[in-house]
Simulated scan of single mutants.
Amino acid sequence: MHHIRNAREDEIQVLTNIGLRAWAQAVGPIGASDELQENAARAFTDFVRSSWLKITVVEDDGVAAGWAAREALDDKITDFWIDPQHQRRGLGSALLQAEEEQVRHGGFESIRLETHAHNTDAVSFFEKNGYRINWLSIAYAPKLDQDVQSVGMTKELAKPSTAYGAEF
């Protein structure tokens, strides 16, 4: 059974490890050097330590199994990580719905995110949950010594009213 809750300050290492495992799976198609993995570990630790108040956690039978964050508490999901050993159990969908509800509650009519284009599992997951690709960019990543393609995805959260007399 899954449960959605806010992150706790004492979970920095647990959330960092979840992020690293999910990140390693995601970058598999483009490769990651040891140096890049060390940089990712530092970045995850620093982010979780400084932003744990902005992180939403999904638990699987009482164990943290994934997390998401919106750094600016706006309409953009900046981090979305499900531990590979907990994937395909509905946890990602539950976490995504919780993030969407927070964005909707914040008064936004749509939600957005981005991922690298070769992360086909993530792109497919978000598409199945109603997200559509609305941009593609290619940028050189010096640490990978190659071009990396990214996609931006958006989902409309609120539909315009079609009721009689609605203002346009």
Rank of each mutant, 00 (worst) to 15 (best):
H2N: 12
H3M: 15
N6V: 10
A7K: 03
E11Q: 15
L15M: 11
I18M: 11
I18K: 03
P29K: 03
D34E: 15
E35G: 08
L36A: 13
E38Q: 14
A40E: 09
A41G: 01
A43G: 12
D46H: 12
V48Y: 01
S50M: 09
L53D: 14
V58G: 03
V58T: 12
E59T: 09
A65C: 05
A65E: 03
W67R: 01
A69T: 02
L73H: 06
D75E: 14
D79K: 00
F80K: 05
F80Y: 10
F80P: 00
D83K: 03
H86I: 01
Q87S: 06
L91V: 02
L95T: 00
L95V: 08
L95F: 01
L96G: 00
Q97S: 14
A98V: 07
E100Q: 14
E101T: 07
H105R: 15
H105S: 15
G107I: 13
I111W: 02
I111H: 02
L113V: 00
H116G: 06
A122G: 06
S124N: 15
E127F: 01
G130N: 10
R132M: 07
N134D: 14
Y140K: 05
A141N: 13
K143M: 09
K143E: 15
L144G: 11
V148I: 15
S150E: 15
E156T: 12
S161I: 05
T162V: 10
